[in-house]
Simulated assay, not measured.
Amino acid sequence: MLKPNTLALTVVLALLTALGPLSTDMYLPALPAIAQDLTASAAQTQLTLSLFLFGFAAGQFFYGPISDRVGRKPVLLFGLALFTLASLGCTLAPNIESLIAARFLQALGASGPIVIGRAIVRDLYEGARAGKELSRMASIMGVVPAIAPVLGGLIAPWGGWRMNFVAALLFGAGLATVVALRLPESLARKSAQTLSFLSILRSFRSLLGHRGYRVYVMLSLLAYGGLFAFISGSSFVLQTVYGLGPMAFALSFSFVVVGYIGGTFLAQRLVGPHGLDGTIRIGVACLALGGSLMVVLVASGVASFLAVVGPMALYCMGVGLTMPQAMASALMPFPDRAGTASSLLGICQMSFAAILGIVLGQNLDGSALPLPLTIAATGLMALAVFGLTGRARRG
């Protein structure tokens, strides 16, 4: 069995949280091909990303509270099974509408592992150790979005865009096997609260009454919002505006992910001496600086794709510094409701990102500027939120 404070457990938890990024990033280079093959517009194809985020948010409403009540492992296995079956539906989708629907179901399945992965960390670790564990997971998880677009770029010319979903299906089935055979139950004491829609809403309302929780959820959703804006818009901007091919796009996307991995490694070194908030402070500065620099370069008419990719790597370093520590800080006050707190955090994060993705998709009209403006806005807002909430965070 997998044990706490081992690399093997960290790797499994990281792969569980990577299920969502894998489902998204691997097929990014194929978005234009999907639009062409299924006779869909860019906005319709964008919905395969944005509806995935809505499904991700909807699933998280239930997974956390149910796992607090019945245990982490059975709920985790249900999510992995749903993800695997929905990946099969994506593979066989005959039109854009059915692909969007299958992506929504795929997201419902993928949302379970990420919620429960964070809850397991809170079950097993405290304080800065939890933040360090989430950063370690993020470092390993970061390898997935780094190689997923490259893998997708290699798969698409050989087997078409549908093979990306075959790969996701195999990944989900493999993880389900490992969880069933090797992952022990981490929940020491099950919640006695009756499960109902109203009881979940009451629990969410109680969590939102905690000022510190609200602040860290806001920081997490802003950091992820800018990242998702790049995920959803970069394939059209870099391939259509800057003329990159699918493989060149995949490599540039991987370069951006290296910034994220660098941020997570740096966070592991900083969180001990500087604490969770000290690490977040550096992270939000990187978010604001990366987004602002991208706006300046693109608005100045720099013709190279590096005007987008370079600043985005800095922004992603900020994501790696900010998001794991903000998540750990949000969950710390609620050891008895870690699943529920993780669910609500995920709902807020994914709903915001989905809305941002839809707005961005409607404004991608052949110009690169809407993308950096969106990313800069989230970075500057994160910096402002951190600067204005010192009392709430200390409380």
Rank of each mutant, 00 (worst) to 15 (best):
Y260F: 15
G387H: 01
F54K: 10
F249C: 04
V319E: 12
G174D: 09
L187M: 14
T264Y: 11
Q325D: 02
K190E: 10
F165C: 00
I100T: 03
S41K: 05
S343I: 05
A58E: 10
G361I: 08
V215Q: 09
G339C: 12
G226A: 04
P335W: 04
L82A: 11
N95C: 03
D37N: 13
S206M: 07
P157Q: 01
Q268S: 11
Q106V: 10
L124A: 13
F165Y: 08
V215K: 09
I140S: 01
P246G: 04
K73S: 05
G387T: 00
A192L: 13
S41W: 05
G131S: 13
G79F: 12
M141I: 06
S300M: 08
L238S: 11
A223L: 09
L181K: 12
S304V: 01
T17G: 10
V309N: 02
L219M: 06
L92I: 15
A303S: 13
R103Q: 07
K3W: 08
S234P: 07
M323D: 07
L198V: 10
S206E: 13
P65N: 02
F228P: 01
L287M: 03
G79C: 09
G117R: 03
R211M: 11
R136N: 12
L85F: 14
G361T: 07
S351M: 10
R202K: 14
A138E: 13
Y315E: 11
L51H: 05
G55E: 14
P94N: 08
A338D: 06
D123Q: 07
G79R: 08
I155A: 15
T374K: 00
F54E: 07
G366N: 11
L369N: 07
A341Q: 06
W161L: 02
M247G: 00
R281Y: 03
F204H: 01
L344Q: 06
G233C: 05
F265V: 15
L227F: 08
A119G: 07
M294N: 09
Q106H: 11
G259H: 01
R72D: 08
P246K: 02
R69H: 07
F104E: 12
I231V: 14
G112D: 10
L92C: 08
F265W: 15
S111D: 09
A354W: 03
T177E: 02
V271D: 09
V70F: 12
R269Q: 15
V295M: 13
G278W: 11
V298P: 05
L7N: 09
Y63T: 03
V296G: 00
G127E: 09
V241E: 11
P372E: 07
A35K: 00
L170S: 12
H274I: 05
I347C: 13
I34W: 03
S234F: 08
L207M: 04
L77S: 04
R214L: 15
I347G: 06
S67N: 02
G159P: 02
Y242I: 12
V179W: 00
